[in-house]
Nucleic acid binder design. Structure first.
Lengths: 106, 106
DNA sequence: TGTATGCGCAACTTTTTGGTTTTGCAACTT
DNA sequence: AAGTTGCAAAACCAAAAAGTTGCGCATACA
């Protein structure tokens, strides 16, 4: 049972849930209403999201609001960092090629 | 069979493969040597990565080099954009709180 | 206190994965 | 031409994921 953020965002329904509660905290029922799935299915996704610590619950009477831990999303950003360097350096290389071409024109 | 980039990066072995070939294109055998898996297993992952268009093959004699399509990684970056806005605005809000506190000190 | 609501949890089913083994083809090597 | 190497594809398997159904426990409300 691998439970990391990449596993969490692999499922399209989960990505939709994340995007939904990013705006405001919602209850499982409220979330389920936005999709074509049952409350239980949403609940299961929420449990996974909690295990990954992307989502946090907040009991309010008999209702439970689920809130996004936006900070956690930065982990994906950090992983992307290594590739960002590559695509920027490729851009630089292209830049170099262009300036070399320009130099030769002169 | 959902075959998108998020599905592609969900598996830790696939993430490792991506990071590996990001540096330089490699053959399935060369990739497999870096892990504790068989060439066939790597081949299967490569097929998935190809279907997601994160990876591109390049035949060279009887060897096939797999190369990363760095550009494709930007799709993740784009998806993150919506959350980046949120975490930046939260930071701004904190900033506002701080400056309000500062103002009251004066 | 009885009933409705909002949930989580556990059991079960179906589909999807990740992996292995086998087979076979193409391309180098001798 | 025969053997070796590099690979994909298919068949198969165990494990996990995604969803459903059913149940039980709080909280709210009449």
């Amino acid at each position: 049972m691998r439970r990391d953020i990449f596993q969490a965002i692999a499922d399209p329904t989960r990505r939709a849930i994340i995007a939904l509660i990013a705006v405001q905290a919602l209850t499982p029922n409220a979330i389920a209403e936005h999709f074509d799935t049952s409350r239980q299915a949403v609940s299961k996704h929420l449990r996974i999201l909690q295990e990954c610590e992307i989502v946090k619950k907040e009991q309010e009477g008999r209702e439970i609001y689920y809130e996004l831990e936006v900070e956690k999303m930065k982990e994906i950003d950090q992983w992307l960092e290594q590739f960002r360097k590559i695509w920027e350096s490729r851009f630089d290389q292209l830049d170099n090629v262009l300036s070399t071409l320009k130099k030769n024109e002169q």
